[in-house]
């Protein structure tokens, strides 16, 4: 028993380390970060006979300062704008995709068409297509719909993404068939069954899906750089991907601000997430 805890604690430390470093280092001063992460030798080092320097991961800041947060949040007024942009992209996708997928997954459950499994297989196969391959056709379609420079070019494909259908259908399978039949006998319509029987059962599946979609769209980079040309309209993820190499003095605080929402989302839904995937795992 004790051995089990030991294994888990050791592994947890390894898994949590990047998060811990990001959080603690966000309270370091820029100078301290430079000291820890740059390995270019200065003249002082050469005089001191140091010929090689290595990266140091330091967990406890020498002095706690909020300067990074001030620099990120207040000295760059655009940061808040970018954060809002991230929300503007992510929120509609999460809500839209969940709603559309729920309806579709329900339809697959009650549909009696004999080829529905084949149609469902198409959903899965299309989901497997790598991004690079569909970027150009997506652009062609966005151009055709005249939305190629707006968020819609990113949001609309997100709403109709087949992953949600797949996940929700799997978890809907766990709802016993008897529920539907009993309701049917009582003369309930499909809408009624959907709203009053299926939806309450699906809380966990919905949580799971919305969390995974949230994380995916919060971290979105590739589609954005193709469609959004104005950098004041870019979401935070793009900004962060560019900041990563250049301004290491800011990256930790920026990451923390960036991570705050998804972490909160994850913590909120963690209990449900497990349950949701549990259901979708049971066929």
């Amino acid at each position: 028993m004790r051995k089990n805890y030991a294994i888990l604690i050791v592994l947890s430390v390894i898994f949590i380390l990047p998060l811990l470093i990001t959080i603690t280092n966000s309270f370091m001063s820029e100078a301290e970060i430079w000291l820890n992460y740059t390995t270019k030798l200065s003249t002082f080092d050469l005089v001191g006979g140091i010929t090689q320097k290595f990266v140091k991961f330091v967990l406890i800041p020498a002095s706690v300062t909020l300067s990074q947060y001030i620099a990120v949040l207040f000295e760059q007024p655009t940061f808040i704008v970018l954060l809002m942009n991230s929300i503007k992209i992510t929120l509609p996708v999460v809500l839209g995709n969940t709603a559309v997928s729920l309806l579709c997954a329900y339809a697959f459950t009650i549909w009696k068409w004999k080829h529905k499994e084949k149609f469902f297989f198409v959903y899965i196969i299309v989901m497997l297509m790598p991004l690079q391959a569909v970027l150009v056709p997506n652009y062609i379609i966005a151009d055709w719909m005249n939305i190629k420079t707006s968020y819609l070019a990113i949001i609309l494909p997100g709403i109709f993404s087949p992953f949600g259908v797949f996940l929700l259908r799997q978890s809907m399978k766990a709802i016993p068939k008897e529920y539907f039949e009993a309701a049917k006998i009582d003369g309930a319509s499909d809408w009624y069954i959907f709203l009053h029987i299926v939806l309450p059962q699906m809380k966990s599946g919905i949580a799971a899906l919305s969390m995974l979609v949230f994380i995916e769209y919060w971290n979105l980079v590739e589609q954005v750089i193709v469609f959004i040309k104005d950098y004041y309209k870019e979401p935070l993820s793009v900004f962060l991907s560019r900041i990563a190499d250049g301004q290491i003095g800011l990256i930790f605080a920026a990451s923390c601000v960036f991570m705050f929402l998804p972490l909160w989302f994850l913590a909120m839904g963690q209990r449900n997430l497990e349950k949701g995937i549990e259901l979708s795992g049971v066929k």
């Binding site: 970027l135 150009v136 652009y139 062609i140 151009d143 590739e222 750089i225 193709v226 040309k229 793009v238 900004f239 991907s241 560019r242 900041i243 990563a244 190499d245 250049g246 301004q247």
Partner: peptide, 24 residues
């Protein structure tokens, strides 16, 4: 000039490529 220039360059090339390959 902010951020990682190389990343921004790659992003630019990637966007131009998408536009051109889409016929625009």
């Amino acid at each position: 000039a902010g951020g990682n220039d190389q990343q921004a360059k790659d992003d630019y090339v990637s966007r131009v490529n998408t536009e051109i390959m889409s016929g625009g």
